[in-house]
Design a protein around this nucleic acid. Sequence first.
DNA 1: GCGACAATACTCGGATATTTCCTGTCCGAGTGTCCATGG
DNA 2: CCATGGACACTCGGACAGGAAATATCCGAGTATTGTCGC
Lengths: 161, 161
Amino acid sequence: MKLSQGVEWGLHCTALVAQAPDGIAVSRRLLSEHYGLPEAYLAKHLQALVRAGVLTATPGPRGGFRLARPDEQITALEILEAIEGTAPAFLCQEIRQRGTGAVPPEDCTRPCGVSVVMAKADEAWRGSLASVTVADLVALVPSHTRKRNRARLTGEPTGDR
Amino acid sequence: MKLSQGVEWGLHCTALVAQAPDGIAVSRRLLSEHYGLPEAYLAKHLQALVRAGVLTATPGPRGGFRLARPDEQITALEILEAIEGTAPAFLCQEIRQRGTGAVPPEDCTRPCGVSVVMAKADEAWRGSLASVTVADLVALVPSHTRKRNRARLTGEPTGDR
DNA sequence: GCGACAATACTCGGATATTTCCTGTCCGAGTGTCCATGG
DNA sequence: CCATGGACACTCGGACAGGAAATATCCGAGTATTGTCGC
């Protein structure tokens, strides 16, 4: 199982949007150029983030994307689920109730051991992601990189070094 | 991201093989009929488990699959990685080094925050699966179901109820 | 009755089509900005 | 000089092809059994 690369794009882009000064929207064009990504395809994932209530989109010139909530209230899990879907990675097909060795339904009041184990693992995974906020992600960006990003987002000449 | 259903098959089948008395091999035909699965496709996953050193295969009549090691030494993680591959779910593409906002390589001595967060989640997930052995899975099967399985595996008439 | 041999039935293993989902792309709808024009 | 109207450029949003991976299937290679034949 490999998960969609859109997750990486969504996390980076959300973190970049979070670095924009208040009131400044970041267009998908800027995002795609900043990370060297195909603009049209990136748009698809950004739309998913809007539908999930992570970002808000503004049309027209000077438009673009903004955080729908403070960066401390958006978790990495939300971003992932917005793009990958909320369905658990493991979906029990109840094969124990099929075939010649089928277990009668009255003995299946509890989920089978396999699904329990997988559900716990899924829980651990999601729990780990839920404990990280976008603010944490931004904090992990080196300070001078953050400064350069801020300059680029405001439209000022990069200056760089 | 949904993970292959072959994982569920592999876990159930390995647990069933573990319920067979010592020296008794379980054929893929019995496994496929027991769970109502397509035999040829199930074979593909069983082969993967053999390659990974989880099961051993014996050809010929009375042949089939056996555990390669005691059930207490085989973890659920091994079975999953045998089928899904050992590659981590999240693979950092280093998009921070691409595009107009590329971070110079000398500033990338450490992995980016996104990949760190995803790696920790992956670690939590795998750790949860590594803490469960096949013996644990068998122990979660109801006792009377286990008894019936044992009878079926030895070729005796089901008896059932 | 016993041993050797051959035919047989059963097993696993790799190579081959089909379907599904992710990836990638395009064009249309809507909105704020900017400029030209008239007062 | 100021207000107004219109054209424009830029934005997002949903609908449309291409490709890789999972799904499903078939046929061939090898082995222990089993029955038969000869001694």
